[in-house]
Nucleic acid binder design. Structure first.
Lengths: 135, 135
DNA sequence: TTATAAACCTACTAATCGAGTAGACTAATA
DNA sequence: TATTAGTCTACTCGATTAGTAGGTTTATAA
């Protein structure tokens, strides 16, 4: 399951993608429209900015807006950033790999199945982008 | 990510599938061979028995063994039993569905993507069975 | 140049979950 | 009837999740 945090992230990013032509959007506006706790949202947007996905402006007329083109940000990227691994096992993860103890990856049935799950999952999550969140 | 618990469950089930012809297998044997904490394993096997996947026998000569044919138990079933939902969102879950608040499932981009992820994931996890864990 | 608007940042908290442990009980066999 | 082996309830303890509090910094505009 995705955490609330990444679900909020997607909602906020979807909203910002819609408003992309309107200039900076206030955190408080996103919070209200998408019903996301304000202070929690602050943290989330900050992370997305530090990751180079969003940009922000302080002071009057400030707010958040896209730094990258939404169409260039894969869903997988956001999940990895906010929640971490997408795979079901550390030993099949591409970005968060950890060797599994007491199990030979060469002939481990579980490993094979979970690698397959990872592959089909990533086929979806790396082909879909934040532009797909627009309505 | 799968929990340790379901990873242990798969290891234990794989071991039991291998030993299927040898009659009841001791919890302590599985615990040693697969390096799973004994008492934790007890709980796991109990759950699998209550779910009708395994059967057990008490007293001397007792132990655990398969009730169902391993080839008839889908990986998806075990994950749902031990860890719960497989989907990334409650609103796309088949077995643990929950309506999502403030989001119309009819035209929610996130919903669509996550339903697609669920579909490809289940294609794998419902076609592979515990027999695939044998080596 | 100062008031105000807005994002930034650190730290805290409460509740839940994950991973495992303790110990007494029950049933089957020899 | 002693021993073997699974059953069951409850407990612990650390990590993670889902926030909240409150002061700081920076940009704009009167």
């Amino acid at each position: 399951m995705l955490t609330k945090k990444s679900q909020y992230a997607f909602k906020a990013l979807g909203y910002l993608a819609d408003k992309q032509q309107d200039g900076p959007v206030l955190i408080s506006e996103i919070s209200k429209k998408k019903r996301i706790p304000l202070k929690f949202l602050e943290n989330i947007l900050l992370e997305l900015r530090k990751a180079g996905i969003l940009e922000s402006k302080k002071g009057k007329g400030g707010g958040y807006f896209f730094k990258k083109d939404p169409a260039d940000v894969k869903m997988a990227t956001v999940i990895r950033l906010i929640d971490g691994p997408i795979s079901m096992l550390p030993c099949v993860s591409l970005y968060f790999y950890e060797r599994c103890k007491n199990c030979d990856e060469k002939h481990c049935g579980l490993h094979d199945v979970m690698r397959q799950v990872r592959d089909v999952t990533l086929e979806v999550l790396e082909s879909r982008t934040l532009a797909d969140l627009k309505d």
